[in-house]
């Protein structure tokens, strides 16, 4: 199973600022291994962020996203102590869901 994400969620003014690091190879399918064989594509296809039962971000990704992706965004309507849930699913069907609690922040 994939390694856990690292999620930081902090209040900045009236918005929640979320920073996520995901551990993923993000193989494009164009790279060759040491023997010259193509490495099959393996990348995150969908990322979904929910808060209080509502989707606050939904993204479709492809092979142009780097290895070990970093995602940074803000959304309105969150409060300290509430949870943000992030999930991704890749082209092989592997998935991962992690949760973070919104911190007070500045």
């Amino acid at each position: 199973m994939a390694d856990p994400m690292r999620i930081r969620a902090n209040m900045t003014g009236d918005k929640v600022e979320v920073k996520v690091l995901m551990a993923h190879e993000m193989e494009t399918g164009l790279r060759k291994d040491a023997k010259g064989n193509l490495v099959p594509p393996h990348f995150i296809r969908n990322v979904t962020v929910t808060h209080g039962g509502k989707t606050v971000l939904s993204a479709q990704w492809g092979t142009s996203i780097s290895k070990n992706p970093f995602m940074h965004f803000r959304f309105k309507g969150g409060k300290p102590g509430e949870k943000v849930t992030i999930s991704w699913i890749d082209n092989k069907g592997d998935k991962r869901t992690d949760e973070a609690t919104i911190a007070g922040g500045s």
Binding site: I65, M71, F73, F75, G77
Partner: peptide, 14 residues
């Protein structure tokens, strides 16, 4: 679905 400031910043090796 309410979306506020969608993909703000995604860092690839740019």
């Amino acid at each position: 679905m309410r979306i506020d400031r969608l993909p703000a910043m995604m860092l690839a090796a740019l």
